[in-house]
Amino acid sequence: MTRTATTVRTRSALALGLAALALPALAGCTDNAPAAGADDGDPRAIAVDASDSSCTLSSTQAPSGTLHFTVKNTGTKVTEFYLLASDGLRIIAEVENIGPGLARDLVLSAQPGRYITACKPGMVGNGIRADFAVADSGEPAVSADDQQLVDQATQGYAAYVKDQTEQLLSATEDFVTAYEKGDDARARGLYPTARTHYERIEPVAESFGDLDPKLDLRQADLESGQKWTGWHRIEKDLWPQRATGYRALSTSERKTYGDDLLANTKLLYQRTRTMTFTVDQIANGATGLLDEVAKSKVTGEEEYWSHTDLYDFQANIDGARVAWQDLQPVLRKKDPTLDQQIAARFSALQKLLDAQRDGKGFKLYTQLGQDDVKQLSNAVNALAEPLSKMAAAVL
């Protein structure tokens, strides 16, 4: 799915019914006056009152270190909350799918600097934004005893992202070559497996707010005047059966869209060569991948034309599992019970996914029954609950 500072995907009512998630539509900026409910004794504990028309923080500044945002949705639309870099594009951390009347926590380690907060009622548009400042507390982010484990985790995850983008670029080159040559059978076969590498690191790709929509935007989420490019534009051309009166792209148009996909993939590859990560980014990214599954994979919305959603489902689970495994030495030291719970629920979910395999791949989403979808959805929710606690545990 594509969720950036400027654009996100729509979700169906099925997501609300099965995954206790949903979504809504944007309001303009309002001033951020102090919100009620913050812990006055802890300057790093910040309450966020997110309504349909306002985004009110208990404080717009904090000392560096582990920040704990508690986001309460007091509106009528499903919302999400972002901490953005000062450029307003790069996503530092996010918490999504906060239903009306519900609250979710966002825990992260923040360095000194200028940031932007954003609530996004309806989970579309630019969000209700305000400046946020983090002052230098002078405190070390990690204890000396934990630093070696943290370094091992962050370096391992950075290597994983690098490897996945390398594989993504190679697979995309093969896919684009087949597509532009008109070898549709080969292109259809390559489509879901090439996208696997993108879906495994989706939160990383989404952190580039200018790039992710060009690569992964679905037609259902197009905003007025927005150009549709990327994987799903080509997907529709390869599987046009659901499109009434669809006109196939010409050879020259295929080349335009194929070349654009490859160029943007190369740009993603270049940007991730030297990326570094913090433990909270890795942990929150794992939670974000579970959100992706619940919102658009388990509902069959992601791959609307090809019905290859289960490949994306598995890829998101793969990415979340790697993030957890990289952090596991830290988590086992700090909260071994939580680590065991996460392990058991990953195993249960994977067992259900394996039951939907077809040879080396997966069944089409349309081949799943309602009971299959419900079981998968329940297992995703069961895993998401302990996984959402991982960031707080490892910080």
Rank of each mutant, 00 (worst) to 15 (best):
V176Q: 05
R271N: 08
G125H: 10
T256P: 03
R247N: 08
R3T: 09
D146Q: 05
V161D: 02
L26C: 11
T60S: 13
S54C: 13
T70L: 09
T172P: 12
V71Y: 06
S54M: 00
D184E: 13
A283N: 12
T6Q: 08
K266P: 08
V298G: 12
L211F: 01
L338G: 07
T196G: 13
A320K: 05
R247A: 14
L21W: 07
L89W: 03
L222R: 14
T10F: 13
E199A: 10
G65C: 12
G288A: 01
Q314Y: 10
E80T: 05
L352N: 01
H307N: 14
L169H: 09
A294S: 11
A153G: 02
E180T: 15
V394Q: 00
Q270P: 03
A62F: 11
S347L: 06
L14F: 09
L190Y: 04
L338E: 00
E166R: 13
D145E: 14
A38L: 11
A286C: 01
A379Y: 02
T10H: 13
V134N: 10
L249C: 12
D280S: 15
G41F: 04
G245P: 09
K266F: 00
R357M: 00
A391R: 08
I234M: 15
K236Q: 15
R3D: 05
T287E: 12
S51Y: 01
A323E: 05
R195F: 13
V150P: 14
L190E: 08
E166A: 14
L108V: 12
S252L: 07
V293L: 12
L261G: 07
L16F: 12
G319K: 11
L217A: 15
A348W: 02
I116N: 06
T366L: 06
R271I: 05
A185S: 13
A320V: 04
V394R: 01
E223R: 14
S64N: 00
T251H: 13
I46G: 04
A5E: 09
L83F: 08
Q314K: 15
A343D: 03
G319V: 04
G75C: 05
S53Y: 06
A384S: 09
S388T: 07
N381Q: 07
N126E: 12
Q61C: 04
V150A: 15
D358I: 02
T244A: 14
L102V: 10
A47Y: 00
F313H: 08
A85D: 14
S12R: 05
L149T: 07
F346C: 00
C119F: 00
F175I: 01
L268C: 10
S12T: 09
E166S: 11
R218Y: 07
E80A: 09
S143P: 06
S377R: 15
E235N: 11
L57W: 00
F208C: 09
T276P: 04
P63R: 11
L168A: 15
K77C: 12
K181P: 03
Q148G: 06
L18S: 05
L18Q: 07
R357I: 00
L331M: 06
A286S: 03
L376E: 01
I91T: 12
D280I: 02
T7F: 04
I98W: 07
A391F: 02
T337L: 11
K214N: 15
L21Y: 11
V71L: 02
Y198N: 11
D312G: 09
R188H: 07
S170H: 13
V134Y: 09
G361Y: 04
L268G: 08
I116D: 00
V134D: 05
